[in-house]
Simulated assay, not measured.
Amino acid sequence: MKQYDYIFAGTGLSALMTVYKMVLSKKFQTKRILLLDVNAKQTNDRTWCFWDQKESLWEPSVSKKWNSVVFANSDFTKNLDLHPYHYNKIQGLDFYNQVLNLIAKQKNIDFVQEKILELEESDSIVLVKTESQSFSCTTLFNSIYNPSLATNQTKYPLLQQHFLGWFIQTETPIFNSEQATFMDFSVEQKGNTRFMYILPTSPTEALLEYTLFSKELLSKEEYEAEIEKYLQQLGIAQYNIIEKEVGTIPMTCYPFWKHNTKNVINIGTAGGWTKASTGFTFKNANKKSSELVSFMETHTDGRTFHSKTKFWWYDLLLLDILDQKNETGSAIFSALFEKGNAPLILKFLDEETSFWEDLQVIWKCPKGLFINALLKRLFRF
């Protein structure tokens, strides 16, 4: 049995961010580290977007930036100047290559491509069994999501951000490559929160995604029918589909961190690192991975790795509303962006605003919905 100081069970976004920063810190060079995943991370399987004011650690992976975006619904279209922010696009394979190229140079880090079958924890070690061998470690970082934790309870609502996207190439120039479509709620809502998302990379190329915040997923045919209808509305008749991507992200304030133990820390979606109210993952994971690396330098008990903030409560109220009245999502986001200050909203979504700034954002929302949600939530705790 091979022994390690740290094992990462699953090598998704959060795990790779964390181990990358461990390497850069140069404070874990004497520690043996193992990455375990059935997926070798050698395909372009997803797209991440995030906004930032300056170049980030992940700049080598950024393939496109936009300084402005469009927000729209059936009643209005608004061009939003994001300054001082930039909206960044990262393709999965570029990110994987940036991280794995650095990891491959480290003598103290191994990557084993095998399926994890079982985890066993004792007082001092964690045993990990795969299809062909076993490993042990002092600390395990688990990013394997267990959906039953959130589904087998009723205290915290659970929605899904689910989507299907086409990266298309048109015969004639149609897109403004310098402006992304952040949310377009002009699509039929059908009792849900539904919008289109467009990331143009050239006048003839763009990623279009049909996205929902709701409880139930759709069939593949339903997503694709809506994309086809939207393309017709844009006047796009001739195009080629270059790539497709599909995914679902749980949106919940369920306290996954309560399942941390002395030797096991849940990270990523499994640790509640996804921004619950929007499903945005990249920026949140970037912050939490930095916090985790700093934590490991001085702490050994995984049960103490968490801090609940005011933004957790804000997210919970929005999810309470969308759980009971899913069709109100368009009205809530439209109220924010029609009258609100876009950079301030982004700062709020990044959880970096003061309480006074919070009020400036929240006050733009439909007040009755949030007051009712607050009153009902107080009786649930």
Rank of each mutant, 00 (worst) to 15 (best):
K367W: 12
I332P: 03
S68C: 10
K347S: 11
L212R: 00
P343C: 06
F141G: 07
V62E: 01
H259K: 07
Y85R: 11
L212S: 06
P60A: 10
A342S: 14
K31M: 06
T204W: 00
L100R: 13
L217S: 15
R32T: 14
S330Q: 14
Q42L: 09
K275P: 06
Q29A: 12
S124L: 11
F71R: 02
E171H: 08
T274P: 08
D184G: 11
D37E: 07
A72Q: 11
A237W: 00
S219A: 09
V19A: 04
T298C: 02
D94T: 12
K310S: 14
I33S: 11
K89H: 04
Q232V: 11
G12H: 08
F295M: 02
S124P: 01
P173I: 11
P60W: 05
T30I: 00
G302Y: 00
K64G: 03
M251K: 03
Q169V: 09
M296R: 03
L82W: 04
E243F: 08
P255D: 00
F379V: 13
I236V: 15
E224I: 03
F379G: 03
A206H: 09
V126Q: 05
K26E: 15
Q189N: 02
Q360Y: 03
Q153T: 07
S68E: 14
K229M: 03
T138Q: 14
W356F: 15
H259N: 12
P157F: 05
F333N: 03
T170H: 02
N260E: 08
A342R: 01
N263Q: 10
N97A: 15
Q98P: 08
T172Q: 15
N260Y: 05
K347H: 11
M1A: 11
Y87N: 13
E188F: 08
T30R: 13
T139H: 13
T193K: 07
L100M: 14
A40L: 03
V246F: 06
Y6G: 07
T353A: 06
Q189L: 06
G302Q: 01
Y314H: 14
K107H: 14
S61I: 07
V264P: 01
V128E: 06
I103C: 07
C253K: 04
K347E: 12
R377T: 15
S63M: 06
V70W: 13
Q160C: 08
Q53G: 01
K325V: 00
L344S: 06
Q42Y: 00
A9N: 09
E221K: 13
K190N: 15
H299G: 00
D37Q: 07
N341D: 15
D323P: 01
V70P: 01
P255A: 01
T151P: 01
T309G: 11
Q238W: 00
F111G: 02
M22G: 10
F76W: 07
K220M: 09
Q113T: 12
A335Y: 02
Y156G: 01
N44H: 05
M183F: 04
L218Q: 10
